[in-house]
Design a protein around this nucleic acid. Structure first.
Lengths: 92, 92
DNA sequence: AAGAAAAAGACATAAAATGTCGACTCATAA
DNA sequence: TTATGAGTCGACATTTTATGTCTTTTTCTT
């Protein structure tokens, strides 16, 4: 599904105008992103949690050049799906 | 941040009523969930992709009992953040 | 504000993911 | 239709995740 598909579905299910849904969905994603950039996790019960995780320094390979490089420690955005979400997906 | 925090922020930034924002955000999450339950991935540019992954049968541990259990092959929901999202988080 | 219940976090270890680059193709989204 | 973000592929060593159960914390509805 694309964003347009999601917007259509939400609009159909809620009766809210597509323009409003699109604007809201976009703002939602932007807000989640900015929250994680600020280091603040987002907890959405029944859906999942968007959390910032720390990745340790790591040695990787540039495969095409067959060289080694060091990836410094850094933060990444991650998502932990809610248990109920996992349950529903696992059985299908 | 909680759902209420997100809804407040979205409402503030878009001018859309909180009640509408909440309804939209809830429907958004529900739609993403149902899409993955149906086996259909969701691609949201600049935010990330919600994708169903297959997990092979696995030997795992019941840690508290220190026993071995077999987890049958199953699907899990996962999220791959967009590159731009990763970039913004990594540097903070 | 209260209460329900979802979620976080701790434990040992096998499985899964991670990262790199670059070229190419695919697909989202305005 | 067009621009460009996103996905894919290779090797491989290291890091991270995911299992159940229990307790505590937190979300979130009313």
């Amino acid at each position: 599904m694309t964003k347009a598909d999601i917007v259509n579905e939400v609009s159909k299910n809620t009766g809210i105008e597509k323009v409003t849904v699109q604007k809201t969905v976009e703002a939602f994603m932007e807000t989640v992103k900015e929250s994680l950039v600020d280091g603040k996790n987002v907890y959405l019960r029944g859906f999942g949690s968007f959390v910032v995780k720390r990745r340790a320094e790591k040695t990787a390979r540039n495969i095409s050049k067959n060289t080694t490089i060091i990836i410094p420690a850094h933060n990444i955005p991650s998502f932990k799906p809610a248990k109920s979400f996992v349950q529903k997906v696992k059985t299908k």
